[in-house]
Computed example of a mutant assay.
Amino acid sequence: MISADGAYVPLLKGQWAEARTVALGQVEQEASSAGGQEIHVRHLSYFSRMCDAQTFANLAEVETQRRGVSQAKELAAVTDGAE
Rank of each mutant, 00 (worst) to 15 (best):
Q15M: 08
M1H: 10
R20E: 06
T64G: 08
L44E: 07
S45G: 11
G68F: 06
L11S: 09
A23P: 00
L24D: 03
L24W: 01
A53P: 10
C51K: 04
G81F: 04
F47S: 01
G14R: 06
R67A: 10
D5Y: 14
N58E: 14
A17V: 01
A23H: 08
A31E: 14
A17Q: 11
P10S: 11
M1G: 09
F47L: 05
S70H: 11
I39P: 04
G81Y: 03
E30S: 14
K13W: 09
I2F: 10
G35I: 02
A34F: 08
L44S: 03
E38K: 15
V27K: 11
K73R: 15
L24G: 03
D80H: 03
H40Q: 14
R49V: 00
A31G: 08
N58I: 00
A60V: 00
S48P: 04
I39V: 14
D52S: 07
S48N: 05
T55W: 02
G25S: 06
T64E: 14
W16H: 12
M50F: 00
T79D: 12
G6H: 02
H40A: 10
I39S: 15
Q15T: 12
W16E: 11
A57W: 01
D5S: 13
Q65K: 12
G68N: 03
R42C: 07
A31Y: 02
R66W: 05
E28Q: 14
Y46K: 07
A76L: 14
P10L: 03
T55E: 15
L44I: 06
V62N: 14
L75S: 06
D52P: 08
A60L: 04
A82G: 11
A7C: 10
T55V: 11
E38Y: 02
Q37I: 12
F56W: 03
S48A: 12
G36V: 04
S3A: 12
A7H: 09
Q29L: 13
V41D: 01
A77T: 00
W16R: 14
V41K: 05
V69R: 06
E63G: 01
R42N: 10
Q71K: 13
I2N: 07
A17I: 00
R20H: 02
I39K: 15
G25Q: 04
P10H: 07
Q15E: 13
Q65S: 13
M50Y: 02
G35T: 07
S70R: 07
V41C: 11
S32H: 07
E18P: 03
V27D: 04
Q15R: 15
S45Y: 03
H40K: 15
A82E: 15
C51Y: 02
E63V: 01
R67I: 02
E38M: 12
V9D: 05
Q26A: 04
Q37D: 10
K13N: 13
S70L: 07
L12F: 10
D80C: 02
F47W: 12
A60W: 04
Q29C: 09
L44A: 08
L75M: 05
Y8V: 00
E63L: 12
D80E: 07
A82Y: 02
W16S: 11
Q15A: 11
Y46S: 07
A53T: 01
S70W: 02
L24V: 04
Q26H: 10
